[in-house]
Amino acid sequence: MKTKYIPLLLALLLLLTGCGARQPEATRQIFAMDTVMDLYAVGEDAEALLTEAAQEINRLESLLSRTRAGSDVSILNETGTAQLSDETAALLDAALHYADITGGVFDVTIAPLVEAWNIHGENPRVLTGGEIAALLPLVGSHHLRLSGAAATLDQGCAIDLGGIAKGYASDVIARLYRDGGMTGGWISLGGNVYAHGTKPDGSFWNVAVRDPMDAAATAAMVQLSNQFAVTSGGYQRYFTAGDGTVYQHILDPKTGIPAMSDLLSVTIVCGNGTMADAYSTALYVMGEAGAVSFWSANRAEFDMILITADHRLLYTPGLAGRVTTEEGGAYEVQVLS
């Protein structure tokens, strides 16, 4: 071959390797809303986008935290009345809707009980029957009234958005990813997951659902793109009382005690982070039968993976082909219909 064609050849090779240029990516870890948050974004200006996302999370925490003085929630809890920001009002409205649709199994007015049990805190204790009986009347969404941005709360009541705030934050950040033109990435806000776009090779993101019986293991893998996933389970946080009884952290608003669920974990997959957060807690409390009938009545809204105490893993047909489990694993796999 004549030497004058060598540059041509080299140019061709260069052209090929040029295709290998990757999109910028960025990662961020944030401690907020009492949890660890991991964010990963792929796309132009990913770094700037995550900075904005971190600011958004801090802004939301200052609105929605129950423990931070001056937040919308704190003001409402302390004074019984508050002029909320539009965002908080919209979220409370959503919370009331979820309380309604779940028949009160999801309820943000559960705060007095949460505080008394203190399972998330440093000094959890088992309440007596009398204490529970005294606190239960304070729980119920009829205690919270919302009129536009004006909210009032009955005497002695309090709200805790812990079961919905991270889900709402994931909605806000998902919108940032979309508007910012990210091609891929994911966020995990203390277990509230949103998977954005696809991986660089065009495949979906693999989200592993932890095995409730073995923290190091995976019970199932689900492939997601532009969807939210939230898992709730008693195994995540619990305390052991003096008599050896284990009390897990999800309270049943009806009984005032930690839910006695026949489920080990509930994973909700859907297109709305706030809903996924609310439903994962509610369906865990409902137990298998309640969760399955709730899904049957609302099957267009979400998909779910249930892991039962008797070692079965159930998932809804909408996830067919996107859920993988290890053969011979700890759970017997069933597809709901």
Binding site: D38, W186, S188, G191, V193, A195, K199, D201, S203, W205, N206, V207, A208, V209, R210, P212, T218, A219, M221, A229, V230, T231, G233, Q236, S265, T267
Partner: peptide, 10 residues
């Protein structure tokens, strides 16, 4: 990381 989990929940 391609086909292993990208993230874990629960």
């Amino acid at each position: 990381s391609g086909s292993g989990p990208d993230l874990v929940i629960g």
